[in-house]
């Protein structure tokens, strides 16, 4: 009986150690680089998508530069929104633990 108890406490300590090391790992360099690469494309993609939508709509409604320009601006806004959201998510993840 005594042995089982001993093993149980040892297991618990080991599990705690695992948790601690995992917490330290989260701020590693590779993960940060991944996040940086992630954000940089998000801004560009939204601008491109917005401009393409505007360009297509211009073709349909025959309002040549008008919709392209306005959707370009909205694309920029959407890109900002994307970047803001990812940054917020990172911030929350960081301070949750």
């Amino acid at each position: 009986m005594k042995k089982i108890k001993e093993i149980a406490t040892r297991l618990e300590i080991a599990k705690k150690n695992i948790k601690n090391t995992q917490k330290n790992k989260e701020g590693s360099n590779a993960a940060s680089l991944g996040k940086a690469l992630k954000i940089s494309t998000e801004l560009v993609a939204a601008v491109v998508v917005g401009s393409i939508i505007g360009f297509l709509l211009d073709g349909w409604f025959d309002t040549k530069p008008l919709l392209t320009i306005s959707f370009f601006i909205m694309g920029v806004a959407a890109g900002m929104l994307n970047v803001f959201r990812s940054a917020k998510k990172m911030h929350n993840n960081r301070y949750k633990n």
């Binding site: 992630k38 998000e42 560009v44 993609a45 939204a46 998508v49 959707f71 909205m74 959407a78």
Partner: peptide, 17 residues
């Protein structure tokens, strides 16, 4: 509209990256 553009930009940013 901005949210829809943001949603549609997901596959583009995912693939372009």
């Amino acid at each position: 509209i901005i949210e829809i553009i943001s949603y549609l930009s997901r596959p583009v940013s995912l693939s372009v990256r």
